[in-house]
């Protein structure tokens, strides 16, 4: 149920973002880009939360919790189809992948810089052209 709601939220955010990016107003386009970046970030986080047999968190004793400490496999064995690190057969664990959260942090910082830059650019365009209508920006005949 929760997964369905999360997927639905991401889908709606993508829809809103795409709609706003296609507007004629520059400020709405920028808001649309922000919404799209949040949709992408949510999608990345959502790929990290699942239950299964994979184990990315390694603590000092070689596991990611007391009960799984002895049952992790760290060596790849391609002939058996084992992509390390995984749990041995018969073990299962619920976890949240920390790597995707690190990825999202990086992506948020990057999109912060981009948004700051593009907002200043939009203000300069307003100063130069006296409008925020994207249809007026055709002096280059692009």
């Amino acid at each position: 149920m929760n997964n369905t709601l999360l997927s639905l939220t991401i889908a709606i955010l993508f829809g809103i973002g795409t709609f706003l990016v296609l507007r004629r107003d520059i400020v709405r386009m920028i808001i649309g880009l922000g919404v799209l970046s949040h949709a992408v970030n949510l999608l990345i986080v959502s790929t990290g939360a699942f239950s299964g047999t994979k184990a990315p968190i390694i603590t000092d004793n070689g596991g990611h919790g007391l009960s799984e400490a002895s049952s992790s496999v760290f060596a790849d064995s391609l002939s058996d189809g084992i992509f390390a690190p995984v749990l041995e057969a018969g073990h299962q664990v619920d976890f949240v992948d920390p790597l995707v959260q690190a990825l999202v942090l990086t992506a948020i910082v990057i999109s912060l810089a981009m948004t700051a830059f593009i907002l200043i650019l939009a203000y300069r365009i307003y100063e130069e052209y006296g409008t925020t209508d994207i249809k007026e920006l055709r002096r280059l005949r692009g």
Binding site: V21, S37, M114, I118, A122, Y129, L140
Partner: peptide, 26 residues
């Protein structure tokens, strides 16, 4: 003003492609 206009196009299109790349990487 020409520079602003060109940079705006460049930045918006490349931000969109950055989102696509992030989706693909994820």
């Amino acid at each position: 003003s020409d520079k602003m206009e060109a940079t705006f196009k460049y930045l918006v299109l490349n931000m969109l492609s950055a989102f696509v790349m992030l989706l693909a990487v994820a």
